[in-house]
Write a protein that binds this DNA or RNA. Structure first.
Length: 495
RNA sequence: CGCGGGGUGGAGCAGCCCGGUCAGCUCGUGUGGCUCAUAACCACAAGGUCGCAGGUUCAAAUCCUGCCCCCGCAACCA
């Protein structure tokens, strides 16, 4: 029996608002999902939220809420966001779900052979009641800016997961491609990182330092730290270990993550799976970050872009288009409003929208909307499918646009408007015209199919217009011009 | 000498693994064409010592050596 497909996304921390990075996760996973479904596969697509930890507890307290109440309210922002980008997910997991909590405790039990008690030592701030990394302490000059007190070395008891025991197996899985890290350079980056072996990871905190989390079974003094809790979601959401059916979906075919969390998903997570006797995910799709005008997005610089704003101004498909084509799937990409608006007006409006419009219009005008018959020459789409299989979605879209361009060129070459003038004079003209226009309509239907994973609304609109054999003229045009951030070249000159 | 990626016409990129057929694509600019279309579409043109300096070769953006510059990552960061 063919295994059913499964794709996952990283679960964001509910403290905070959805941002463009989350959108990339959902978008890439959704494109893959829609593509696979189009190929006839059954796909399960997980999303969710990470809801435990000190930051949640602190935020809740600020607002005089119980942590759970805070999480209950905040996770909705993410759910709404996921719906807003039209991600066709099948499962939404919250780490505070009853089943998840119980499953994580089961996982803890099962990992016992690889769990030991150790001492965590690090820089501690009494005011924060928390540890800071060497780097953080260095940046702050050794003194906590919030409490005006020097950090001190402190140690506490933690449970550790023996990830080091799995170094060889993980390395082998990566090298053989059993767990493929895409793109290749990320794989090399990670292998380099673990050349001296994986380090054991601390997986719990004393309760006094971490109140809001999954209790460690059998030790009331300890609470689970983020790793076991959050990473487990990828299997608990399927029903692991007690509900029927999870085996049909695990191992995941693709796990979508940002480059910032590769090490956890390629190190700790596989170690957990191996400890549980489960298979490793087949592929990790590591996408880059969106930068703005050549620099990292940051609140202090104030160059943060809001995905909601883009969607509200230009529509969802325009958003999906830009971020799937102009932000390379496997690398960092640059966003500016100029680029975005240029792509919107030029590529979506002029290339595609106008093409649909001119074809629909000619068929309506010359043939009362009736689409004739033509032998459809199937465009060779090997490059498109190759790109999709290799998770290079931006390249797949490049191929679609090559088709769009060719069709515009084709129309220019055969000049249907000239042929139309011959109808009535030349006996073959009518037939010829009909074939030309039918070819155009057919090509557009094919383009619509290829766009389906990326621009579901636009794909549906194109289908709507041409699929019945009679052109159904839409109310407005696809992607009308917008000049919200750049000057309108057609505006009367003021100077 | 920490690891990795990159420096190609005004902008953004491809080509480099497997040297010649490579200087290609998109945008921008200029000229022309067309009129079905969202003042759109199509064609042509201008513009590059392919980071710098050496080397290998009949031949190098492509291989080798050295140097300069930019950008990521650098392990408890959700």
């Amino acid at each position: 029996m063919e295994k059913k497909l499964y794709i996952t996304t990283a679960i964001p921390y509910v403290n905070g608002a959805p941002h463009i990075g989350h959108a990339m996760d959902y978008l890439l996973a959704d494109i893959w999902t829609r593509y696979q479904k189009q190929q006839g596969h059954e796909v399960r697509f997980q999303v969710g939220t990470d809801e435990h930890g000190n930051k949640i507890a602190a935020k809740a307290q600020e607002e005089n809420l119980e942590p759970q109440a805070y999480a209950d309210r905040n996770y909705k922002k993410f759910e709404e966001f996921i719906v807003k980008v039209n991600a066709s997910y099948t499962d939404f997991i919250r780490t505070t779900d009853q089943h998840h909590v119980a499953a994580v405790q089961y996982i803890w039990h099962k990992l016992q052979p690889y769990i030991y008690k150790g001492v965590y030592q690090g820089w501690y701030c009494v005011g924060h009641e928390a540890f800071f990394t060497d780097k953080e302490v260095q940046e702050m000059g050794g003194v906590c800016p919030d409490h005006q007190k020097p950090f001190e070395q402190l140690s506490e008891e933690n449970y550790y997961l023996k990830t080091s025991a799995f170094t060889d197996k993980i390395r082998e899985a990566i090298n053989t491609g059993a767990m493929e890290i895409v793109p290749e350079f990320r794989k090399n980056e990670f292998l380099e990182l673990i050349k001296n072996g994986l380090q054991d990871v601390s997986i719990s905190r004393p309760r006094k330092n971490l109140s809001w989390g999954v209790p460690v079974p059998g030790d009331p003094e300890q609470v689970m730290y983020v790793w076991l809790d959050a990473l487990s979601n990828y299997i608990t959401v399927l029903g692991y270990p007690d509900k029927e059916g999870w085996q049909e979906y695990w191992p995941a075919d693709v796990q979508v993550i940002g480059k910032d969390i590769l090490r956890f998903h390629a190190g700790i997570w596989p170690a957990m799976l191996l400890g549980l006797g489960l298979e490793l995910p087949k592929r990790l799709l590591v996408h880059g970050h969106v930068i703005v005008g050549g620099t990292k997005m940051s609140k202090t610089i104030g160059n943060v872009i809001d995905p909601i704003e883009i969607i509200d101004e230009f529509g969802l498909d325009a958003f999906r288009y830009f971020f799937s084509r102009h932000i390379p799937t496997l690398d960092d990409g640059d966003f500016t409003w100029e680029k975005f608006e240029g792509a919107y007006n030029g590529e979506l409006g002029n290339d595609l929208g106008n093409l649909v419009q001119r074809v629909a219009s000619m068929i309506t005008r010359y043939q009362a909307g009736v689409i004739g018959e033509s032998e459809q020459t199937e465009h060779d789409m090997t490059l498109y499918h190759d790109a999709m299989e290799h998770l290079e979605f931006n390249k797949a879209l490049d191929e679609v646009w090559n088709m769009v361009r060719s069709l515009n060129q084709y129309i220019e070459n055969v000049k249907p408007w000239s042929v139309a003038k011959e109808v009535g004079k030349d006996s073959e003209a009518e037939q010829h015209l009909s074939e030309i226009l039918a070819h155009c309509a057919g090509a557009l239907l094919q383009i619509g199919d290829l766009l389906l994973p990326f621009l579901p609304t636009t794909a549906a609109a194109i289908h709507d217009i041409f699929e019945t054999g009679v052109v159904k003229q839409p109310e407005g045009v696809l992607f009308p011009k917008k000049y919200l951030h750049t000057p309108d070249p057609n505006a009367p000159k003021t100077a």
